Simulated assay, not measured.
Amino acid sequence: MERLAKRCGTEQDRPQADAGVVAGSAAYDMESGEISRARGFVRDFLSDARSLRGVAVPARALEVAQLVVSELATNVCKYAPGPCLLDLEVDGSMLTITMWDSGSVLPSPLQGDPSRAGQHGLEIVLAVCQSFEVRREPVGKRVRVQISLLDGPDGDPAGQSPW
C-alpha cells in the first residue's frame, strides 16, 4: 500500500516549531508491512535536512535512525498491525522519532539472553538511543526516542546516554 501521507506537518503533541526545527510525518498501513518505506522516509527526511537545511547528519546517525525505525515498525507489524504514524523532528543536535500505533500493549525489554533467537529489537533500540519513552494514548500508544546527531571523537554519539 502506498504511503498515506507524506511530510505533512502535524502539530499534535509538538511544541510550536521555530526556524531551527525540521519536522516531517508519514502514515502507513502496517498490515501490509511497509517497514522499508518507513526506513526510506527516514533516509529521505535526513538527507533533505542535510542538503536543504544544512543540518549536520553524520552517517552513524542516519544508519541508527533507519535501524530504530525498522525495529519499531517491525514491532508494529507483529503486535499492532494497522495504521501507524511516524513523526521525525530535528531540533538542534537531536533527532526525535515518534511512532504511534493502535496497539494497547506497551513494549518492555526482555532480560538479555544471547541464546534467545529473535525478540532483540527493543534491546537494540535501547542500546543506540539517548532516550526512550512509551506513553499510552486514548487509542494505542506512542513510542518516542531520541538520537544524538553529534559524534564524539571516537565516532560514538556525543553526550550522555541513559543506558
Score class of each variant (00 low, 15 high):
M1K: 10
R3K: 13
L4N: 05
L4R: 13
A5N: 12
K6L: 13
C8K: 14
E11I: 09
E11N: 10
Q12E: 14
D13G: 09
A17C: 07
G20P: 00
V21I: 14
V21A: 07
V21C: 07
A23T: 14
G24P: 03
G24R: 09
S25A: 14
A27E: 11
Y28P: 08
D29V: 13
M30A: 04
G33Y: 04
S36V: 11
R37A: 15
R39N: 05
R39S: 12
F41G: 02
V42M: 05
R43K: 12
R43Q: 09
D44A: 11
D44F: 03
F45H: 08
F45C: 08
L46I: 09
L46E: 02
D48M: 09
L52P: 00
R53D: 05
R53M: 05
G54W: 04
G54C: 04
V57N: 05
A59W: 06
R60W: 10
R60F: 11
E63G: 10
E63K: 14
E63C: 05
V64I: 15
V64Q: 01
V68G: 01
T74N: 07
T74W: 02
N75V: 09
N75H: 10
V76H: 01
V76F: 03
C77A: 14
K78R: 15
K78E: 05
Y79K: 06
A80R: 06
P81V: 13
G82D: 01
P83W: 11
P83N: 07
C84F: 05
L85M: 08
L86K: 06
D87S: 07
V90A: 03
D91E: 11
G92H: 08
S93P: 04
L95E: 02
G103M: 04
P107E: 02
S108Q: 13
S108Y: 00
Q111D: 08
P114W: 13
R116V: 11
R116T: 09
A117D: 06
A117I: 14
G118T: 07
Q119N: 15
Q119L: 12
H120L: 10
H120V: 12
G121D: 01
G121L: 04
L122K: 06
L122R: 06
V128A: 00
C129V: 15
C129K: 04
Q130N: 08
F132L: 05
F132E: 01
V134A: 10
V134H: 02
V134P: 01
R135F: 02
E137H: 08
V139Q: 08
R142W: 03
R142T: 07
R144W: 03
L150Y: 00
G152P: 01
P153V: 11
D156K: 15
P157A: 14
G159L: 05
Q160P: 07
